[in-house]
Amino acid sequence: MDVLTNNFSLYGEGFLGTVRLTVYSSLLALALGVVMAGFRVAPVAALRAVGTTWVTVLRNTPLTLLFFAMLLGLPRFGVALPFELFAVLALGCYTSAFICEAVRSGINTVPLGQGEAARSLGMTFGQTLGTIVLPQAFRTVIAPIGSTLIALAKNSAIAGSFSVVELLSTYKTLSENGYSVVWSFVWIALGYLILTLAISGLFHLMERRWGVAR
């Protein structure tokens, strides 16, 4: 127990680091994922190809490799950004591929008549997608997006090994200070449980409020 009480600020810092990583990467992943999903159903073949390539490549890339390439590779080109930003970029891009697939499967559940009605009102592709189809698609994919974001929160642990302050990396400091390794891991595990349970609770709420089943 005293592992936690003696190092509360260290744990707090690590926990907040993980929360920050998760929140920023989620926003990036959601934005990129929705754009890519739009690309994948667009009437322009070149855009579809971009979306498909993005998803295929990122879904088959190990996240560690992405971190390795981004955090250690980009500085070779003189791109000097803080580690945390690199980590957000890597996590966000990686997760966006999964968000894209979730959103696209949501688009597929929207009844045909919705798109047809929008078109017969003279709406363009952008209007149909943005104002008619996507809002309905989101409501069916709240749960899958939630589990993708939970996975993102768990994946953020990798960032700790690339000099980003986050929850898992606190164990190093603790074991240097001679604290029991097992106990420090118990509290780390608890931190992740709190975070994932919070996300899953949030998405449950959202699903209860807005979700529709088709």
Partner: peptide
């Protein structure tokens, strides 16, 4: 499934 290839996704 798209979701299932995400490590950690259910």
């Amino acid at each position: 499934q798209a979701g299932s290839t995400m490590p950690g996704a259910r």
